[in-house]
Nucleic acid binder design. Sequence first.
DNA 1: ATGGTAGACCTTCTA
Length: 259
Amino acid sequence: MRIATWNVNSVNARLETVLAWVDQGQPDVLCLQEIKCVDEKFPAEPFESRGYNVLVHGQKSYNGVAILSKFPVSDVRRGLPGDDTDEHARYLEAVIEGPEPVRVASIYLPNGNPIGTEKFAFKLAWFERLRRHAAELLKLEERLVLCGDYNVIPEPADAKRPEAWVGDALFQPESRAAFRALTWLGLTDAHELGGEPDGTFTFWDYQAGAWQRDHGIRIDFHLLSPQAADAFRGIETWRDARDMDKPSDHVPVLVTLDP
DNA sequence: ATGGTAGACCTTCTA
């Protein structure tokens, strides 16, 4: 089972790029973030014609997540529990009915900049809601993959220039602590299993020649339950995708589980 | 100290 995550920064502006990578990467499951459209505007047809079932949790202009699956899906959850006033479309979960069922979530954590504002407070509160929900899901003792754009640089090794991120919401001690609290529930970052070296980044800003200078960060993760970690086969970070025509600022990350 | 880019969409916000 090949499970990929990709923040595409508008699925409609990026459609040709996304389809070109799908044809290369051949994911069984593709979790998208920042689709930036409402459900009705999601370009489902080209994915359906490639054999994917399409789940969308969108909103106008901002955010929006989707799950594309070659296998049937069940037990779909739209939105993260714990705050009825939260209208951001940042969480979508479903069970993928593959040869071994796996519960997958497509996650777009709030950016949280600038620090010291309600945006940063919202990020930390959202993180805590995710921790609580993940604790509930772990009780199911299933294969579980929580993947997406976490908008956190967990460790200095996850940035080419960590000093440039001091004071940014992605590298704040509270953000890093919230990520650790999530993993300490018993989730494993697939990167830790996969043997990809330090300097394996998933995001390079469009600005200031970040890509040309390799000023990248690693902020897109697959967090695995013990049952999923036991089935881990490999991880591939598709760095080349940052050089495609009309690239996203993120690249796809693909985890393979056995079978 | 600033600005640099990209997308949605209408004017500025988000990242």
